[in-house]
Amino acid sequence: MTSQWPLWEVFVRAKRGLSHIHVGSLHAPDAAMAVRNARDVYTRRGEGVSIWVVPSDQITASSPDEKDAFFDPAGDKVYRHPTFYEVPAEAKHL
């Protein structure tokens, strides 16, 4: 039996009102220990108010091989951005 504890990804909410952000990873035997270890390792300078831990092998990622097909098509949809539209200066609050 391997005793290498699984890897977990750690996400920390820096303060209320902000999203959880990925800060790094660590090893822990289970979820209860992972969240505690994350507290000790990643918030010992007061960096957070809330922690998520996710088993690294539970993350489904987009494939780098498909990145052109995945992300390039979004590159030319300029009409999704507000700066695409010209409106007269006197029209306020747009």
Binding site: T2, Q4, W5, P29, D30
Partner: peptide, 15 residues
């Protein structure tokens, strides 16, 4: 520390 790491892994597997 090996026995400690093994114990925690075994506990997690049981749960």
């Amino acid at each position: 520390g090996a026995w400690v790491r093994e114990a925690a892994a075994a506990y997690a597997a049981k749960k």
